[in-house]
Amino acid sequence: MNTPATLADPDTPFAVVDVHTMRRNIARLKDRADRLGVTLRPHVKTAKSLDVAAHLNSGTPCPVTVSTLAEAEAFADGGYTDITYAVGVEPRKLPRITALSRRGVTLRVLLDSAEQAAFVTEASRRAGIPLPAQIEIDCDGHRGGIRPGDPALVEIGRVLHDDGCLDGVLTHAGESYFARTAEDQCLAAKNERDTAVAAAERLRAAGLPVNTVSVGSTPTAHAADDLTGVTELRAGNYVFFDLVMAGLGVCRVEDIALSVVVTVIGHRPEHGWIMTDGGWMAMSRDRGTAAQAQDQGYGLVTDLAGRLIPGLVMTAASQEHGTLTARDGAALPRLPVGTRLRVLPNHACATAAQHRGYHTVDGTRPARPAPAIEAFWERVTGW
Rank of each mutant, 00 (worst) to 15 (best):
V361T: 12
H55F: 11
P345W: 06
L160N: 02
C62R: 03
L304G: 03
T231Q: 03
G207Y: 05
C349P: 03
G164K: 09
L203H: 06
N237G: 15
H142M: 15
R35A: 12
P345A: 08
T84G: 08
H161R: 11
Y358R: 07
A316H: 14
L110S: 14
Y85H: 13
H172S: 08
H271K: 15
Q292I: 02
L131P: 07
C165I: 04
G297L: 02
A15S: 15
K45W: 06
A198I: 03
F376A: 07
L324I: 07
F119T: 10
Q294T: 13
L110P: 08
L56D: 00
G249F: 04
V52I: 14
A375C: 11
T6S: 14
D242R: 04
T323G: 05
K48Y: 02
D226G: 00
G37P: 09
R147L: 13
G216Q: 03
H43I: 06
V253R: 13
G288L: 04
D303F: 01
V262F: 08
P219L: 02
M314Y: 03
E378Q: 14
C251V: 14
L36T: 04
D11G: 10
H172W: 11
L69R: 02
L50K: 08
G149F: 05
L243G: 00
T3P: 10
P91R: 15
D194T: 05
S176M: 00
T263W: 05
V215G: 08
A316T: 10
K93F: 12
I265F: 06
R96N: 11
K190F: 00
P366S: 13
E320I: 08
E90W: 02
L94N: 05
H267V: 11
V213G: 00
R103T: 12
T181I: 12
T263A: 14
R158E: 13
A372M: 12
L203G: 01
A223V: 02
I274V: 15
K48V: 06
T351D: 06
A15Y: 04
S67I: 07
R143M: 14
D11W: 00
M22W: 07
G207Q: 07
G249C: 11
P13I: 03
R32H: 15
Q354C: 15
N2W: 09
L243V: 07
V361M: 01
R125K: 13
L335S: 07
T106W: 09
A235I: 02
E374G: 09
V239C: 02
S217Y: 06
G37I: 10
A53M: 11
V17Q: 04
V159N: 05
T218K: 06
T181K: 10
Q296T: 12
P369D: 01
A8E: 08
D242Y: 04
L69C: 11
V380E: 08
G145C: 09
H355A: 11
S49P: 09
T171W: 01
A350K: 10
L107A: 11
L341K: 07
P369M: 07
A196P: 00
G247Y: 03
A326F: 09
L29H: 09
I137R: 03
N211H: 15
W273H: 15
P42S: 07
F178S: 11
A282W: 04
